[in-house]
């Protein structure tokens, strides 16, 4: 008889694994990616999507190779980062800018902090902000579905200019980043993540709900304005896919709920009172930094502990 295993319990395990979770996130992002391709055109979007994903995976692969670390590209998290970044860029971005964003996200924000699970800031969001700073007009300039550059609905709210209808907003017929405009597709992804129990509903709902409620209050109870705020910019994309990132959010649900509330608050303040048209990315990055403190502030006494 061969040697028996002496490892301690538990001796059974759930079927989940990290790679499967990442695969689920990729699958959940696919509707938004496909919608982006349909709305903004294959030629305009596909090269950006591919560039971001390939650059992300390649830079993680090379980083591990050069620093002689265990290869981690198999966990698919670099694919998620690349894909998320691409969906956060407009079709105006140049291919090398997109690639640079991926390298920045993977090498500077993720790998240098110790790789998967160790970075404190969301790589895709930080890279997007970096690109915004470096090449403002190219990255963020609203590209309309017909390919012309123009103002996004967020620029237009309150100016009295003609806005897309709410249905057009819901289906994504408006200017913006590749993956942020089609709310229907994002909600499909959200539903999938909920069914697969990858994320919980609390974070996206609290995040979006906070923006909605504050917009309602500050617009003198204009449901229309609040709905436009909800469907505009990167709110849904950010709330569903970035504010739910495991690594850069607190570990307890209680702290995650405060995290979501903070995101909603900052997003609203930036949108409503600041010069910037959009605040989702900045709000998430801000709250990423606050995460450890949120965990600390919301700590509860364990059962039978102090």
């Amino acid at each position: 008889m061969e040697q028996l295993m002496m490892s301690s319990g538990p001796h059974i395990h759930s079927k989940d694994n990290s790679r499967r979770i990442m695969l689920d996130v990729i699958l959940a992002l696919l509707p938004a990616a496909i919608a982006g391709v349909v709305i903004f055109g294959v030629k305009e979007t596909l090269p950006i999507l591919l560039t971001c994903v390939i650059a992300a995976v390649l830079s993680e692969f090379l980083f591990n190779l050069i620093t002689k670390k265990k290869q981690t590209v198999g966990d698919l998290s670099a694919v998620v980062t690349g894909l998320l970044l691409a969906l956060n860029l407009s079709t105006n971005v140049l291919w090398w800018q997109a690639a640079l964003g991926s390298v920045f996200a993977i090498v500077l924000v993720k790998c240098l902090f110790g790789g998967i699970g160790r970075n404190f800031a969301n790589p895709a969001i930080t890279a997007r902000i970096f690109l915004l700073m470096a090449f403002t007009s190219k990255v963020a300039g609203g590209v309309l579905p017909d390919g012309t550059t123009g103002a996004t609905p967020l620029d237009l709210i309150g100016t009295g200019a003609q806005l897309p209808t709410l249905l057009e907003m819901f289906l994504g017929q408006r200017g913006g980043a590749i993956g942020e405009t089609c709310i229907l597709a994002l909600l499909l992804g959200f539903a999938y993540l909920l069914i697969r129990k990858v994320i919980r509903w609390e974070i996206p709902v609290i995040f979006m709900g906070t923006v909605f409620v504050l917009s309602l209050l500050f617009s003198g109870f204009s449901f229309e304005t609040a709905l436009y705020e909800l469907l505009s910019g990167g709110l849904v994309l950010g709330a569903v896919f970035m504010a739910t990132d495991y690594t850069t959010t607190p570990i307890t649900l209680r702290a995650r709920m405060w995290f979501a509330l903070g995101c909603g608050l900052i997003t609203f303040v930036i949108r409503w009172f600041c010069a910037l048209p959009e605040g989702v990315s900045y709000s998430i990055l801000c709250m990423n930094i606050l995460s450890p403190w949120l965990e600390k502030w919301t700590r509860r006494k364990p059962l039978g502990g102090v």
Partner: peptide
């Protein structure tokens, strides 16, 4: 047992 991979902080 499956070989462990890095913690992804999923909570």
């Amino acid at each position: 047992k499956t070989e462990p991979s890095p913690c992804i902080h999923c909570g």
